[in-house]
Structures are given as structure tokens and as C-alpha cells.
Amino acid sequence: MRLKTLFFLLIVRPLLLLFGGIRTEGIERLPHRGPAILVANHNSHLDTLALMSLFPAATLPRVRPVAARDYFYATPLRRFVSERLVGILPLERRGVKKRGGHHPLDPLAEALDRGEILIIYPEGSRGEPGELRPFKSGFAHLAKMRSNVPVIPVEIKGTDRALPKDEALWVPFIIDIHIGEACYYNGTVREFTRRVERFFKAPSDGS
């Protein structure tokens, strides 16, 4: 069994069970097979762990959160956790603009071609607690490149209380994860970005 799977089964899931507790809505819409693009809001490092912990062990190796290489590979420890335990798909943020004819999203499209499930945070990075920053359109460009791949919006709440940005103390709060209906790219990149973004702005149904 891979280190990543063990990490989630033996460490992440028990910790989340004890100190968090995840309530889900629409868990049946979580894809068990790739390719798929999960688009989520981002307030905490717990977002990735909580969302990934919902996947069955067999799917886990194929779930790849897309994250900035310059931050997550910056120190050996961070790199070990990011690469081996979480299995991120490192994204080059700087100086990649059409370098040598490569599109910066090519590695992501290739991952989708391999049947992987990508987690993308279009807010760019973790925002202030509870605040939704305007979505960047990267995921929509990717969806346009692979328009047969479903895009699934995932709203995560509670992680901003449990472990907000710039805090090291994890305080137990319940984490709510709401998985939306899959949609496919159409229209323009701008329109598609707004359409997905609307899911996160809709008032939740109070459950």
C-alpha cells in the first residue's frame, strides 16, 4: 500500500474523526473514478485533507490537489508531505508563460488524460476566514482543454474556524462539505468561471 493511502487511513481520517467530524451533503456525487476536476473554496490546509479523506482508499492515489510548487516544495519537510503523503500536482507559478511552446496547464491536462481527479482552488490561495475571493479562471481554461471532463464544485465550511491561515492551533469544529452537481464546459471561459462560482455564493439550504 502506498504511503499516501496509509497516511490518510491511519492518520488523517482518525484525526478528523476525533477533532473535526465531517458532515457531507451530496457525497454520492463524489467521483470514484477519474478524470474529474473538483473545484473548491479554500481557507485552510485542512480543506485538502478533509476533502481527500472522503475518497475510498482505492481512489486516493489518483486524487491530486493542484498546488504551487514554489510554496509546497520550498523546504524538504514540506516537500515530503506534499509529494509523498498528500501527492500534490505541483504547479509552476513563475516564468512559465508559453515557455518553449508549452502551455502552463499541460501537466494538468496530462493528469486528466491519465484518469486522475484534480482538486483546484480557484481563489488562488487560502483566503481570510469565511471569505470567498474572486475565482481565477485557470480551472475553466483546463475544462475547455478537456471539455468531456466533469467539473464538480465542492463547498467546504468550518475549516476556516478549525485551522485558519496563519494559525497553528487546530481547534475542533465540525467541517461541512457540500458536493454539487457535475457540469461540463460550455460558453466562454469567463462565463463558465462565473457559473461555477455561483454555486459557492448561493445561500446553503440550511441543513
Partner: peptide, 17 residues
């Protein structure tokens, strides 16, 4: 934990919680 999750809090309240 359910109670603390449902009530509105300030960010600093994490400390007393």
C-alpha cells in the same frame, strides 16, 4: 462541538473555545 460550530464567533474566540 456541534454548539460551537453552529454559533457565530469571532476569530479570536478560537482561543477561549
Amino acid at each position: 462541538k456541534e454548539y460551537f460550530t453552529m454559533i457565530p464567533i469571532r476569530r479570536v474566540d478560537r482561543r477561549i473555545i
